[in-house]
């Protein structure tokens, strides 16, 4: 049960129940869909870029608590960052949820807040739930409307 408590900690359940920045973004400069046909999870991410920076980001999705909370946390973490900073953050996030690096403390800025999802590292088949929105965000910033299927090797 302790691994589950770690996975479904209160921050995750809170973002699942009350996702932040939820809904389409009217003045978006780009959007993209991410989906996993194996489990049916879908997420759409809208971004409004001002120059190199993410001025605003929203999402809509159907899926598990992990995918929804991850998308919600992501939207709170990337606002104001440059596209390059978002890529760096995405790489760090992926390293944490796959267990390649230890989770930073919660006080450690944007990555510290995202580390609420570090419990995913004990559940390898759930990694793609946590990374789905990040793939969509990357595609939205890059201007590709379809983020396709990230890491869809394992059906949960």
């Amino acid at each position: 049960m302790s691994d589950l408590r770690e996975l479904y900690q209160s921050v995750i359940l809170d973002h699942n129940r009350a996702p932040r920045n939820y809904g389409p973004l009217a003045d978006a400069t780009g959007h993209a869909e991410g989906r996993n046909p194996l489990c049916g999870d879908e997420v759409t991410v809208w971004v409004r870029m001002e120059g190199e920076r993410v001025a605003d980001v929203h999402f809509v999705g159907t899926g598990c608590a992990i995918s929804k909370a991850s998308a919600s946390l992501m939207t709170t973490a990337v606002k104001g960052k440059t596209a390059a900073e978002v890529t760096t953050l995405a790489d760090q996030f992926r390293a944490v949820v796959t267990g390649q690096v230890p989770a930073p403390p919660p006080s450690d800025g944007a990555m510290g807040r995202l580390a609420a999802l570090s419990g995913v590292s004990r559940f390898p088949i759930r990694v793609k739930c946590a990374t789905l929105a990040w793939h969509a965000l990357h595609a939205a910033i890059a201007g590709a409307p379809d983020a396709g299927v990230p890491d869809a090797r394992v059906s949960p």
Binding site: Y8, A65, R126, P156
Partner: peptide, 9 residues
């Protein structure tokens, strides 16, 4: 509770 979360639990 989404079915995937339920299955994990």
């Amino acid at each position: 509770i989404h079915a995937h979360d339920l299955a994990t639990i």
